[in-house]
């Protein structure tokens, strides 16, 4: 459970651009965007209040970052991100809220090690293909 449930805050105050820290205290990127979703339609036909969008995931990586930067550079950035993904999926990397352990002003702690996050691919590629083959890389 997160301990933010009963406080009001703005995305800018606590979430956007904050450092993500994994379960072992390792840096795991920054929050580039937020995902809001319509909750599942209530089968009992609940009122409209239940249908307000709720925060469901933190988004990160170039596909989420590009549009925030805006302009031509942002478009290019996001396009590069999509190309790097290679799987044709144009949706940013999601970190579902279930992985969030704690939020404070400076960082967002996750319950998972960063190796298991979807945003880990570029890092893994650089580490395996560029850095690890060099002598003394620590592998």
């Amino acid at each position: 459970m997160t301990d933010w449930a009963h406080h009001r805050f703005t995305a800018n105050d606590l979430l956007l651009d904050r450092q993500l820290v994994d379960s072992r205290g390792m840096m795991a990127g920054r929050i580039d965007d937020l995902e809001l979703s319509d909750p599942e339609p209530d089968p009992a036909g609940g009122g409209s209040a239940a249908r307000a969008p709720v925060l469901t995931a933190l988004l990160c990586g170039p596909i989420a970052y590009g549009p925030r930067l805006g302009g031509r550079l942002g478009t290019w950035w996001a396009a590069t991100g999509r190309r790097l993904r290679g799987d044709g999926d144009g949706y940013p990397c999601r970190i579902p809220l279930s992985l969030v352990a704690r939020v404070d002003r400076m960082q967002v702690r996750l319950t998972s090690p960063r190796e298991l996050l979807p945003s880990y691919r570029l890092r893994a590629w650089v580490a395996d293909k560029v850095i690890a083959p060099l002598p003394g890389s620590g592998r």
């Binding site: 390792m26 570029l122 890092r123 650089v126 580490a127 560029v130 850095i131 690890a132 060099l134 003394g136 890389s137 620590g138 592998r139």
Partner: peptide, 10 residues
């Protein structure tokens, strides 16, 4: 070690 901060080293 460098693999632990791969993109930084890159």
């Amino acid at each position: 070690p460098p693999v632990g901060a791969a993109r930084f080293q890159f």
